[in-house]
């Protein structure tokens, strides 16, 4: 083996290592730079096909925990209701003395998401008002359950 070949192999190997790192970052770029890059190609086929159940503009896509111990958790909204509480089978499991085991439920109806208190001890608050019956949740309005604050986002 000539020195030159070995030098080339050495450089090629280092380049390959870094290429691996870059490829790995490429796989997770949606995590680093937000969902926009990934969501765009995913939405394209919907424009042509336009099925009824697809979310229209202005409809929430995600439920984001903005306050409390679970801050940062994001749940993608599908057709299924989301239960919130201390019970381990809830979609969002809280460990909060101020939350009940089955505290509240979020479900979609006619294109909007409704929050419903499930008879909790300390109540569910939509912005400042207590939720007494199923109430529609606008985008970006905080829902407070114990120490946890969640909101719906596009």
């Amino acid at each position: 083996m000539s020195e030159l070949t070995l030098l080339l192999i050495r450089l090629a190997f280092l380049a390959l290592l870094w290429f691996f790192v870059i490829a790995a970052v490429g796989v997770i770029r949606t995590d680093l730079f937000g969902a926009r890059t990934a969501a765009a190609p995913a939405r394209k086929p919907t424009k042509t096909a336009k099925p009824v159940s697809k979310p229209k503009r202005g409809e929430p896509r995600q439920m984001v925990v903005t306050g409390g111990p679970l801050q940062g958790t994001v749940i993608n909204l599908t057709e299924t209701p989301i239960t919130i509480g201390r019970a381990t089978d809830a979609t969002l499991v809280l460990s909060d003395d101020y939350a009940s085991s089955r505290h509240a439920r979020l479900f979609p109806q006619d294109g909007q998401w409704i929050v419903e208190d499930l008879g909790s001890t300390n109540g569910t608050y939509l912005d400042r008002s207590k939720v007494t019956r199923p109430t529609p949740v606008p985008l970006g309005v905080p829902i407070r359950i114990g120490k946890t604050v969640i909101e719906l986002r596009k």
């Binding site: 280092l14 290592l17 691996f20 790995a24 970052v25 940062g72 958790t73 969002l92 499991v93 460990s95």
Partner: peptide, 28 residues
């Protein structure tokens, strides 16, 4: 160059773990 690449791979493993922590739905 190689050491930094290896450290980057470790950093990415940790990042994926912390990302999991961030996305987890219960405190435990």
């Amino acid at each position: 160059t190689g050491l930094m690449a290896i450290l980057m791979v470790y950093a990415l493993i940790v990042e994926r773990g912390l990302r999991t922590a961030l996305a987890a739905r219960d405190p435990f």
